[in-house]
Design a protein around this nucleic acid. Structure first.
Lengths: 347, 347
DNA sequence: GCGGTTTCCGGTAACGTTCCCGGAAGTTGC
DNA sequence: GCAACTTCCGGGAACGTTACCGGAAACCGC
C-alpha cells in the first residue's frame, strides 16, 4: 500500500466477499454466528484487500481502546527502563499497546500526562506517582495501579512494590554474617517515605540483635552519586580508625561512596565495606564489584500490569503486592568475621 | 468522576452551555468562527462537566490519531532507553502520545509490532529495523524514520544516526595524541554493517597517517562484556610486552576488556589503554573510569522524531542525518606520549 | 431603507466499527 | 404438513467528533 492511499475498510472487504458488512465483521471478529465457508471467504477477501482493523473505530464502538498507559519518573533511568520493559511484555501478551510517559519528578508534567492518557482513552494505567495529593488520581476515572514505593500515600489502590523490609533484613543479615553488626547508613532525603521505612526496618532489626539503633552512624543525602560521595567523606571524617561498613539506600550513592573511599586513599573492601541497594547494571562494572540488594524491576512492571489487566477485567478487590529482593554478592563487602576467626585460631 | 460512570461528551457540554454541539466543538477546538462570549460560556461548561475530548473519536473523524510509534530492540538497554526518552520529549512537545515496543532483535516480533502500530492508526513511527528485507516496512503505508546504524539497508528513507566516521576519527586522534598511533581493535560481529564502517574508517585514518592498516591487531567478538573479556585475553596472549592500546567498538566490550586486564594481573591504564564507544552510564563507575566516544542517544531519538513529525506534516524529500559524537575522557587511556617526552627531557 | 457583506450559529452527514434485531431459509418433531 | 426451532445473514443504529453548508441576524455604505 502506498502512502496517502485510502486504507481498506471492512466495507471494502464485505464487497469483495459479497456479503454485508455485518457478516464481514462477524467473520473477522471470531464470532460464532457464521458458517465456516462464509468466514473463509471473508478472511480471504480481507487478506487480498490488505485489510487491517481500525482500532480507533473499535475503541469508539466497543469502549475498549486496547491501550494501556505507563507513567514513570524517567524512562532513561535504568531501573524504570527495566520496569517499563516488564510492563511492555505483559501488555504485549494481552495484545495491548503501551503508551509511555516520563514525569521527570514534576507534578505538573505528571498531571499533563494523566490528562493525555485519559484523552487517549487508555483502559488503565500503571503509575509511579509524584504528586503528593491524590486528587489528580482519584479523579482519574479509570483503573490504575501504583508501582514503586509510594503505595502508602494511596491506601485504597492496588500497588506493586518491592519488599523493603525483607530487603533490608537481607542486607543486614549479610553484613552481620560478614562481621559488620552495626553498619553506618547512607540514607535518602528526609522527606521521602522510603527513607523512613528503610530506617525503621534497620532499627527493628538492630533491636532484635541487641544493638542500640542510636549508635548507628547515619548520613543523609539525595540519592545521587555526588551525594553518596560527600556522605562517605563525612563518614571517613567521623570514624578515622578501624574498618567501616556502609549500607547505602541506593546503588548510585554506594558507587559515589566507593569513589570517595578511593579518593581518600583508602580501599574498598579492605578499609571500607559497602553494600548497595537497587541492582543497577553499573554496579557490576565498578571495582570492586558492588555487592547490593537487587530489586526485581522488570518483575515489578510485569506484575503491576497484570494487576491492572485484572482490574480492567472487572476483578474486584485491590491487591497490594510486595516482591522479594535478592542479594547480589560481588566484592565490596569484606569478610571481617573470617579474618577474626583466623586471627583467634577458630575454624 | 467515579469509576464506571459515563464520561461526559461534547453533547453534554453543548446542552449545559445551551448551544448546539457544532458550536461547542468550534469553541473547544479553537476555531475562529465563534464569538468570544459564546466561547467563554462553552469553555466554562466544559470545565464544569469535567469534559475531556475523546481522542479516539477525533482520530476517526479527522484521520489524525495524535499517536506516534517507536520500535527499538530493547527499551531496557540504556542506550535505547535514552533514545526513547528523546523521542518522548519531542512527541510531548507536539502533544502526541508515544507507543513504545521492544523487538528483541526478532524480526517476527518486529513484524507483530508494526502491525499493532498500523492497527492503532499511529501517524508514523521511528524504528530501528531488525528485519533485513524492507518488505514489511515498504508496506508500512505510513511515514517512518529509521534510527541508528541501519540506514544503508533502506536507501530511500529518512534516517537519523550517529556519525561513525567522525567518531572513529575522534577516537583515533585522541589515541594518537596520547602516544598510541596503532591501537588494537576489538570489533563487533562480522555480519553487522556497523563493523565494516568502523573498520573502513580506521583504515582510512591509518593510511592518512602513513600507518599500514594491516599491522593493526584485531579481534572479533559479539558486542557483549564476555566477548570483550575473551577478546582482551587473546590480545594479551598475542602481545606480551610493552603497552597495549585498545579501541573497542562498544562500551560493554571495553568494560569486559578492562576486567580481563585486571584478572590477568596487568593494570589499566599503566599496561593497557582502553578506549570505548557508546557512552553508557556504567563507564563512569568503572575503575579506572572508561574513556569513550559518546553517541548522542537522546538527541538521536529527538531528531528522528522531529524528522518524523516533519514528514507527517507533508514536508517533501527525505533527509539523512548523522549526528556528531563526543569524546569523554575519564582515565582508561594512558598518556604515553607525555611519559616519552619526559623520558627524553623534552617539554 | 435596501442590496450586499460579515458574523455567528445549527443541522446533518460522515469517519469505521460493533451490536441488536428481525427475517429468511433450513431442520426437526409429531 | 405444520409448528417450533436452529442457523445464518442483512439492515440499521450507535459510539463522539469534525467538516461542510446554509441561514439568520447584524452591520455597512449609499
Amino acid at each position: 500500500m502506498k502512502r496517502g492511499e485510502r486504507r481498506p475498510t471492512i466495507i471494502d472487504v464485505a464487497k469483495l466477499a459479497e456479503v454485508s458488512k455485518s457478516t464481514a465483521a462477524r467473520a473477522l471478529s471470531g464470532a460464532t454466528d457464521i458458517s465456516e465457508d462464509t468466514r473463509a471467504r471473508v478472511v480471504k477477501a480481507a487478506r487480498a484487500a490488505g485489510y487491517e482493523r481500525n482500532h480507533l473505530a473499535v475503541g469508539m464502538r466497543s469502549g475498549r481502546s486496547g491501550m494501556l498507559g505507563l507513567i514513570v519518573p524517567d524512562i532513561a533511568n535504568p531501573f524504570w527502563a527495566e520496569a517499563a520493559r516488564g510492563a511492555q511484555d505483559r501488555a504485549a501478551e494481552e495484545g495491548a499497546s503501551l503508551i509511555v510517559f516520563s514525569s521527570d519528578w514534576d507534578p505538573e508534567r505528571e498531571a499533563r500526562h494523566v490528562r493525555a492518557l485519559r484523552q487517549a482513552r487508555v483502559e488503565g494505567a500503571v503509575v509511579n506517582p509524584i504528586s503528593d495529593n491524590a486528587d489528580e488520581f482519584s479523579r482519574f476515572g479509570l483503573p490504575f495501579v501504583l508501582i514503586g514505593s509510594s503505595a502508602e500515600r494511596f491506601p485504597d489502590h492496588a500497588s506493586v512494590g518491592s519488599d523493603i523490609a525483607q530487603a533490608v533484613r537481607l542486607g543486614l543479615d549479610h553484613l552481620v554474617s560478614k562481621g559488620h553488626p552495626a553498619p553506618a547508613l547512607i540514607l535518602g532525603p528526609k522527606n521521602r517515605l522510603a527513607r523512613a521505612r528503610f530506617l525503621r526496618t534497620v532499627h527493628e532489626h538492630s533491636v532484635a540483635r541487641d544493638i542500640d539503633p542510636q549508635t548507628l552512624l547515619t548520613e543523609d543525602c539525595d540519592y545521587s552519586v555526588e551525594g553518596g560521595y560527600a556522605a562517605m567523606q563525612r563518614l571517613l571524617e567521623r570514624q578515622q580508625i578501624g574498618h567501616i561498613a556502609v549500607f547505602a539506600a541506593n546503588d548510585l550513592m554506594a558507587l559515589g561512596a566507593m569513589m570517595a573511599v578511593r579518593d581518600a586513599g583508602r580501599s574498598c573492601p579492605v578499609d571500607v565495606s559497602i553494600l548497595g541497594f537497587d541492582g543497577i547494571p553499573a554496579g557490576a562494572f565498578s571495582w570492586p564489584g558492588l555487592t547490593t540488594i537487587e530489586k526485581p524491576a522488570r518483575e515489578l512492571g510485569y506484575r503491576a500490569t497484570s494487576e491492572l489487566i485484572g482490574e480492567i477485567g472487572g476483578r474486584a478487590g485491590i491487591e497490594r503486592t510486595y516482591l522479594p529482593c535478592r542479594l547480589v554478592e560481588r566484592g565490596s563487602v569484606a569478610d571481617v568475621a573470617a579474618d577474626r576467626r583466623q586471627a583467634v585460631g577458630v575454624r
